[in-house]
Design a binder for these strands. Structure first.
Lengths: 141, 141
DNA sequence: CATAAACGTAACGTAAATAGTTACGAATAG
DNA sequence: CTATTCGTAACTATTTACGTTACGTTTATG
């Protein structure tokens, strides 16, 4: 959800979006959105203003924020696969646990590397391209 | 857990292991183990025998089973990241959802590729090596 | 200043997933 | 026959995420 919010804000080019509008867009409640926005705000990725005409905007240039930063702003100490419990007995199981945990750890590192290579601005450009292309093909049909 | 079971069975070299033994090893209940074993059995990866002296063994050679097969035997239609809801409105959000879903889909494909490149036998060899090395360093200390 | 808009956050209920427990029937070796 | 072991259902926590309501705070505007 955080990625969606960041993409939407980038697409909106500095115009503040209310949690109400985002909630309608995603078929959920404003509170859910504000909870995610709170984490993004804590990470310094968005800014919000209260009161009439308020809402949220990006706090930094879209081309300076990687998707990895967005991901890490949300998943404090969450993992793709939660690390396997260490309370296993015997000579084999703990070593096996280390092996499997490393495997999934590497997978997560690969995901992070992939996300670090993409900025919010690039995501926005890609999405904008897709929207234009869909419009064009619709016009030609 | 399925990876741990497969590794443990490979390590046991054809000796049947009871769900009781596995449960003690992992500090859980035999029923939990049997539930996982049921899925592995359905996928043709393990065989079980009831009664005295029963237990589970690998149903195929360890060097013919990839970690990907094990993973897919468990995660019927589960994903690392559950695909984002498609019930979002407006011209932007659904396209954005497609983009993000693709991103995580690619990450999962990368994980699958990594797991496909490793057999249960290779995992077993790696774990066995680590156990030996730990023993040696313990002896030298 | 009064009012309406909008955020920030706590409190509570609900739903789904996961794990653990108990129970009991079926199969099997001795 | 009996002890062992699997197979599976049923029930109960426990966790997690989501949704709703509520209320205080901030802010623009007339």
């Amino acid at each position: 959800m955080a990625l969606h919010i960041m993409g939407f804000l980038a697409f909106s080019r500095g115009e503040a979006l209310t949690s109400e509008v985002l909630a309608e867009t995603y078929g959920t409640s404003p509170v859910v959105l504000r909870r995610v926005l709170a984490k993004l705000k804590r990470a310094g990725l968005v800014q919000s203003r209260r009161g009439v005409g308020g809402g949220s905007v990006l706090a930094r240039r879209a081309d300076s924020v990687t998707l990895r930063e967005v991901y890490e702003a949300i998943t404090e100490d969450t993992h793709l696969m939660p690390p396997f419990s260490e309370n296993c007995r015997g000579p084999v199981a703990p070593v096996l646990a280390g092996y499997v945990n490393e495997l999934f750890g590497e997978a997560e590192q690969a995901l992070l590397a992939k996300m670090q290579a993409v900025t919010v601005a690039e995501m926005d450009r890609d999405v904008s391209r897709r929207i234009l292309r869909a419009k064009d093909s619709g016009r030609n049909a």
